[in-house]
Design a protein around this nucleic acid. Structure first.
Lengths: 273, 273
DNA sequence: TCACAAATTCCATTATTTGGAACACGATTT
DNA sequence: AAATCGTGTTCCAAATAATGGAATTTGTGA
């Protein structure tokens, strides 16, 4: 096992940076990505409009994806992601060493704060949540795990970005189209870079209702010595119950947790341990 | 949304049956599959030995997979599945209508029995677990969900197979290599077909420690009227706490739950509802 | 029944993948 | 310090698969 968790980020960044060709596979994944990111179910024609592929081509791509179990088509001719993806993800998750190592540490943070704790990793231009600890176990599995969120408006995302050099941050954010989720959402590269300066100085980042109104969080950056891992850990809470002053009080606790996580990664996932 | 859940199964069966070509994509997925199903981490050379591709070719495939975030490579040069798969799976799961509809129904079964309840769907020649309800919430997420198991030695698997015609069952099992997990594991197609006759007659299937010693279960088949869905629901328990006689007493309860699930699917996932 | 739209199939052209061999790198041995 | 071995990586002509425009089929509503 290894620190798989973030080679991806770097490689994906590389792709973003140099636009490396991934041929047929890339096109197939683009189709999956369109379907994954569409809020509504898509029919063939919808897909045709969103991808810019000719009909015949798209049709064959879709057929292949279906034959591979990566895509499925229902009675009403709309497409959804296939179950084979569940199988792969289940393995990817259960074998992830970083997550495994991190678990007891983030659990401790949850016990100290009583609020929801998230562990997220930078993957390309998004943050993917690897784990989550919360009190109310009523929330269903997969509810947040595997979820991909923008970097520029989440605590974990900004924390993870803060571990990269400005040039790399620019490369990552270059092709991202900013969406103003709330009035406080940062909506351009310069604003993000500006805030990263503070985050690097303080060792913590905040999401001041930038992604979802009524929800804020405090997060801190996790990075391995070799720069292969860019991640973050956060404590999230609703504004009505937990004021910003409380988040600020948790700052050092979160920072220490992040430090502990970074150290654990260096100690346990280093080259030849 | 739709009954995506199982078109896959049929299409995948189709692939198994007629060996439909999926070109470059199929080869890439084969690589992922090798990595997913290997118990130990693989390095490039290991992968080379397991796939039967020439070096140059495999190398490019792997590079593309990495660039797409489907694969990641760690410090010790071993490969693991990439985090992008988590993202896709998270969407696939949260949008799955069957799972959503089934949830309250399987929860009821759990409350009635007090034991772990699984919901699984036939996908190609495997069963993929879509959901799980259990008392001890200590078990981690993804622990079972997304898990792919053989059909021939699980209660849910045999139940799902029982909804297909014998010819289709043969097509599905044709390329499966049977593994004798325990002394009671059925290890050939004829034995399975034979047992399916009983399952179709009784409406329930049992896993008599066929997959794991000390664990047995009672399951029942779920199918939609249009034959697009082949699934099963089960109650699993350790033999030391729950005797076979108890499983048998639960038979009708499980059968009724499965009936309820089939009806719910027909009612809520039919062509134009 | 007809007309229209959506989905699917077809196939000569074009682009990508293939795979053998040569190259580069690092670790261990001589 | 040089040679060797086991890896991983790059290259490019030949082989193969993907492309995309147009024709065909299927499904739907009037």
């Amino acid at each position: 096992m290894n620190v798989e968790t973030n080679t991806i980020a770097l490689k994906a960044n590389a792709k973003i940076a140099n636009g490396r060709e991934t041929g047929t596979l890339g096109k197939a994944m683009d189709v999956l990505e369109i379907i994954a990111s569409s809020p509504t179910p898509l029919r063939f024609t919808d897909l045709l409009a969103l991808s810019n592929q000719p009909r015949g081509t798209l049709h064959r791509q879709v057929t292949n994806l279906i034959d591979e179990g990566l895509l499925s088509v229902g009675r009403d001719q709309t497409y959804e992601l296939g179950l084979r993806l569940l199988k792969f993800a289940s393995k990817a998750w259960s074998r992830n060493r970083f997550r495994e190592i991190a678990e007891p540490i983030i659990r401790k943070l949850h016990e100290a704060t009583g609020e929801t704790v998230h562990l997220g990793v930078l993957n390309g231009s998004e943050v993917i949540y690897l784990d989550k600890v919360e009190s109310r176990q009523t929330v269903r599995m997969y509810s947040q795990i595997g979820n991909a969120s923008p970097t520029y408006c989440t605590g974990v995302g900004k924390a993870a970005l803060s571990t990269l050099e400005d040039a790399k941050v620019r490369a990552v954010l270059e092709r991202v189209k900013f969406k103003k989720y709330t009035t406080t959402t940062l909506d351009n590269v310069e604003a993000v870079l500006n805030e990263l300066t503070d985050i690097r100085r303080d060792g913590v980042s905040f999401d001041r209702e930038e992604h979802e109104p009524g929800i804020h969080c405090v997060a801190a950056p996790i990075a391995s010595r070799d720069g292969l891992l860019a991640a973050g850990v956060s404590v999230t809470a609703p504004t009505f119950r937990v004021p910003m002053s409380q988040l600020k009080e948790w700052s050092s606790l979160v920072r220490e947790t992040a430090k502990e996580l970074s150290d654990a990664v260096d100690a346990r996932l280093s080259p030849r341990s």
